[in-house]
Simulated scan of single mutants.
Amino acid sequence: MNEQPLVSVVIATYNMGQYLPLAIDSVLNQTWTNLEVVVVDDGSEDDTREQMKKYGGDPRVRYIPTENKGQPQAKNRGLQEAKGDFIAFCDADDLWQPHKLEVQIPCFDNEDVGVVYSEVSYIDQHGEPVDKETPYERYSGVVTDKLVIKNFVPFGTAVIRRSCMEEDGAFDEDLPMGIDWDLWLRYSMNWQFQYVPDKTYTYRIWPGQMSKNYRGRYKNAFLILNKFLETHPNALPKAVQANAWADMYVSRGMSLATAEKLFFQPLKDVLTGLRYNFFFLPGWKALLKLLLGRARV
């Protein structure tokens, strides 16, 4: 690409005035210069509007205050307002690294690639680095068979080709959580994904954030998986679908065992997972941990 195409960066925010300017500044400080930032304020009740006044004279930043309708609606409003050939995301409490777009956008030279994503680093609520292992293996190419088992695409790292949205839709507004996994599954049916190992995105870990709501996450994950498999019943081999359900039940069971020190409900989930795939090794490992009490220590 000889000329820089326009990249639209959507930031949906709700009561994140303390972090929002840091997120915006990290995007504006990109080595990639042809970009716009679309900030959709989902009815914030803090000082977000005051914080946004500092960007009033910057033509690269558009501030769109709305009524509080939830993050899917806010993100979709951002997508509607985006003018770029490519669309990227940054959560209001996170940060971009300056080279993010410079290393990711060239991957779109391959016209089959619809989503380019990268690796993540972590900080705490005060901005101090946090050591955390990468939870999932990353994949490139045609990834539906891997993605249906684990959402290995960190949301804020993703840059999408505008055609993805135009051809395969935006976020499902009926889902309060897990909307990115639902989106990636749909996009994976028609587009390739490309992983860039650079740490271009910094995820902030702080008390009270939605990502800690594991029960809500799993509730919506079950809905998303069921919806995808019902919509695309022949997209994946039966064995892959069985693995997806097995992993879903086992993962939920072990989350409950670890977080709430439960036994019988996790045991039921693990056994259900093994009924989907008797040879699912993580299920047997989870069962052993439960029986030995290690998952609840």
Score class of each variant (00 low, 15 high):
2 N>R: 14
7 V>N: 05
9 V>C: 05
10 V>G: 05
11 I>R: 06
20 L>C: 08
20 L>M: 10
24 I>M: 11
30 Q>A: 09
33 T>M: 09
37 V>G: 00
40 V>S: 13
49 R>S: 15
49 R>Q: 14
51 Q>H: 13
51 Q>N: 06
53 K>T: 13
54 K>L: 15
60 R>Y: 02
69 K>L: 14
70 G>D: 02
72 P>S: 06
72 P>L: 07
73 Q>V: 15
75 K>M: 13
78 G>S: 14
79 L>Q: 05
85 D>K: 12
86 F>M: 02
86 F>S: 05
89 F>W: 03
90 C>L: 14
92 A>H: 03
93 D>P: 04
101 L>P: 02
102 E>Y: 14
104 Q>P: 00
108 F>R: 04
108 F>L: 00
109 D>Q: 15
109 D>C: 12
113 V>T: 08
113 V>C: 11
115 V>C: 04
120 V>C: 11
122 Y>N: 09
123 I>N: 06
124 D>W: 07
126 H>C: 11
127 G>W: 09
132 K>M: 15
139 Y>H: 12
142 V>P: 06
143 V>W: 03
144 T>G: 01
146 K>M: 15
147 L>W: 00
148 V>K: 06
150 K>N: 15
154 P>V: 08
156 G>D: 01
157 T>Y: 03
163 S>H: 03
173 E>C: 05
175 L>N: 01
177 M>Y: 12
180 D>L: 09
180 D>N: 11
182 D>R: 00
187 Y>M: 11
189 M>V: 12
194 Q>W: 04
196 V>D: 01
197 P>A: 13
198 D>R: 02
200 T>G: 03
201 Y>F: 08
206 W>C: 10
211 S>C: 04
217 R>N: 04
217 R>E: 01
217 R>W: 05
217 R>V: 08
219 K>S: 12
226 N>P: 01
230 E>A: 14
233 P>G: 10
235 A>R: 06
236 L>H: 00
237 P>A: 11
237 P>H: 03
238 K>P: 08
239 A>L: 12
241 Q>K: 12
248 M>H: 07
250 V>M: 13
252 R>Y: 10
253 G>R: 06
261 K>S: 08
262 L>I: 01
265 Q>D: 11
272 T>C: 05
278 F>N: 11
281 L>E: 15
290 L>C: 09
291 L>R: 10
291 L>K: 11
